[in-house]
Nucleic acid binder design. Sequence first.
DNA 1: GTAGGTCCTGTACGGGCGTACAGGACGAGG
DNA 2: CCTCGTCCTGTACGCCCGTACAGGACCTAC
Lengths: 177, 177
Amino acid sequence: MTTLDHGNDTRSRILAAAQKLFAERGYAATSLADIAGAVGLTKTAVAYHFHPKDRLAAELIAPAADDLFDFLGATFDTFSRCLDGLVTFCVRHRAVVRLMLEDIGRIDEAPPGSTGEAVRTFRDEIYAKLVGPEPTDFTRVRGWAALGALEYGMVHTMDLPEETVRQSLLELLSRWA
Amino acid sequence: MTTLDHGNDTRSRILAAAQKLFAERGYAATSLADIAGAVGLTKTAVAYHFHPKDRLAAELIAPAADDLFDFLGATFDTFSRCLDGLVTFCVRHRAVVRLMLEDIGRIDEAPPGSTGEAVRTFRDEIYAKLVGPEPTDFTRVRGWAALGALEYGMVHTMDLPEETVRQSLLELLSRWA
DNA sequence: GTAGGTCCTGTACGGGCGTACAGGACGAGG
DNA sequence: CCTCGTCCTGTACGCCCGTACAGGACCTAC
């Protein structure tokens, strides 16, 4: 499920608006007032449902956490298989992938459980998985370039079908194996 | 010349510190106080030399502007030739490429001349050049992915030699032609 | 000596941010 | 009827941001 459960209750509407704005501008650049304005409420109302602000991001990321741990826990024998898993994971949760790739490291507090603590610097974990245990100069560049290609490729093609983006990115990145 | 003229005067030291911090955290996420602290001054001193804050980014970007217009003005017959020019341009100015790819669109005012006005949304111009006049779904994804690969590949490999990064990215992106 | 320019500090202001708190509207349950 | 919990508003607070302004230290030129 790539989009949110669009319930009509206020909580869901806030989540949907926040997901959209976070993907467009990033977490730090989106204020509670922005989100509130998009839903037609005051920022205090948003703060009432999600307090503190971190919980918004945490709740958005939560459904992706399980898939993330599956990916991080798995071992891949080749670079291309690792890419396959990564692309599938990212595309499935592309609406929040920017949150995880860029902004998550600066979120101060973790969600109630311990999940958030582990997710904290997970971009670097993904990177470490991409470059493997003994990185060379080339594989370092390749690892970061792959992450950048994923983020930009996702964020700026939200209007395209999920499967189209997935196949395109898989096709492109597989040429880097 | 990829790094700044490291003169010992205060202006140059501020510029060097700002360049480093902007590349690491981005323009908006770097305050005048951060820069001042890195140089050992007060934020008012920084504001004295560069006023308003935009001028800092403008002055950093200025030397790259000429190369940028050369690239934007040129016409390339193939995708791979376009990539070649783009990679060369980006690597040469990799210290400020993040400024131009991410933050420039949100800088409120332009530098005194008209250059800043033209540079404003130049990321989209580069993108338009990459995908050409009649983009397909695949070339759209490819264009954005290429930009993301460039930015991440540059920003996170600042410690590697310029030529190494250039050759690696060129090698990688040429496989997408 | 003194006037003027450069460079920098200290202080203060307005604005946006996330947050805290009191209170009102509303419906459900005793 | 009264109470309680839910949902939301209005107001206010402290923080950090970029900026404005007055003044001090220092060097140069006349």
